[in-house]
Nucleic acid binder design. Structure first.
Lengths: 214, 214
DNA sequence: CGGCGATTGTTAAATAATTATCATCATCCT
DNA sequence: AGGATGATGATAATTATTTAACAATCGCCG
């Protein structure tokens, strides 16, 4: 049962979970791979393949029990516990994320918000007082922070990421449009590059007017 | 030269561009596929394959001229012109994005910000006055808006997306944690699901403690 | 002015991911 | 009670993506 989970599957798991959650809340008892695939734009085959990486959740002739599968995904994704986070960089995006009491408000908690700007330090953002970046590493270590959300300007992103990596944090969620250089045994890094997604859109918009999609 | 561009390549193009831009700004004249690959965590082979989809930009024995390649990518990605955007939903993320004078501040411009909440309509956000959602479709059409950034609550995301689709907008950048149902000949849709990326992190953090990476 | 070193563009091979197929089995209906 | 139905789990086939290999080519240096 310890099969390799590809990146592609890893990206699909949260999507399955979100959909299962909403089906469960709607009171749906079971769902077939075909139905779920249709809801997510995937083939039935792929849905079954994916779930079978983690074990057999389905009943033949019946489909998958929504509640049980949702529970299983919750376990797999580590959502049965709360994760403590800090936001590093109190700019526009950083402040927005500090107010993130979102989906499974239980699972993700922002514990602190840091910045270097003296004019910003001490101000209130969504009930948090912005702390000085000097305190960051010790705060992370003393409060067992799991995830650092990095929203600093790209020029300093790697420097700050390096500093964060010297703490005991488990993962970094990077919003700076820069590739952070990963370190052996350092935190897990995932990036969200908004600007890249925008450029992907303009690429497609530009291409649309030249060649039709096949 | 009209080869099919896969999704994987499409996602790498902006990364190439960003790196080329910074190399160019640093005054670097040429870069080999090997060097560029190392900077981006790709193989030299892959870099060459990708560029060759769009034509031969390199000089044998020499590498790729940074400036010329950057220009070419700018053309390919459609960054030679300005793109007009609106932000729909003046919540935390929406307000943050309204202040988006980011990278190629020339290429992307936020022209307006919409919401349904009477308490928010009329307020100022980063120099923009929040407009009523009632005006949205006509504003998009009259001002030739290219991209709508959707940052409304998930419950109404599809409803609003549908409304946007009735306008002449070319693309939607969706931040709601929901799969928008695409329509034939409707706008191009790309989504950024922050919550999914967080879950992908907790999945990896959870998995790390059970099985070591092979 | 000719050979050497380096790096491309291209084709081929290997690997990974997705889709299709099918035997098996649980449930339901008559 | 038994067969039809429908959907899983597993395996096989297909397709896509990545990596490797190598001949062709350019500039540089002597």
């Amino acid at each position: 049962m310890v099969k390799r989970v590809s990146d592609a599957v890893k990206r699909r798991l949260p999507r399955y979970y979100r959909r299962l959650l909403s089906l469960d809340e709607a009171g749906t008892e079971s769902v077939s791979s075909k139905e779920l695939g249709a809801l997510l734009g995937l083939t039935a085959s792929q849905v079954r393949q994916d779930f079978n990486l983690f074990g057999g959740f389905g009943h033949q002739g019946y489909g998958y029990p929504v509640n049980k599968l949702r529970e299983a995904l919750e376990e797999i994704l580590g959502l049965k516990r709360a994760w403590k986070m800090v936001v590093v960089g109190a700019g526009n995006i950083g402040r927005a994320l500090a107010g993130y009491g979102y989906l499974g408000g239980d699972a993700f908690r922002v514990e602190a918000l840091f910045d270097v700007d003296p004019a910003v330090i001490g101000t209130q953002v969504h009930g948090l007082t912005v702390k000085s970046a000097d305190e960051m590493v010790s705060f992370i270590n003393e409060n067992n922070i799991d995830i650092a959300i990095l929203t600093v300007p790209q020029e300093v992103a790697n420097k700050v990421a390096h500093l964060i990596s010297s703490s005991a944090v488990g993962a970094i969620l990077n919003f700076a449009p820069v590739k952070l250089d990963a370190q052996e045994n350092g935190p897990i890094i995932e990036s969200i590059h908004i600007i890249d997604t925008l450029m992907s859109l303009t690429y497609q918009l530009s291409a649309k007017n030249i060649t039709k999609p096949r």
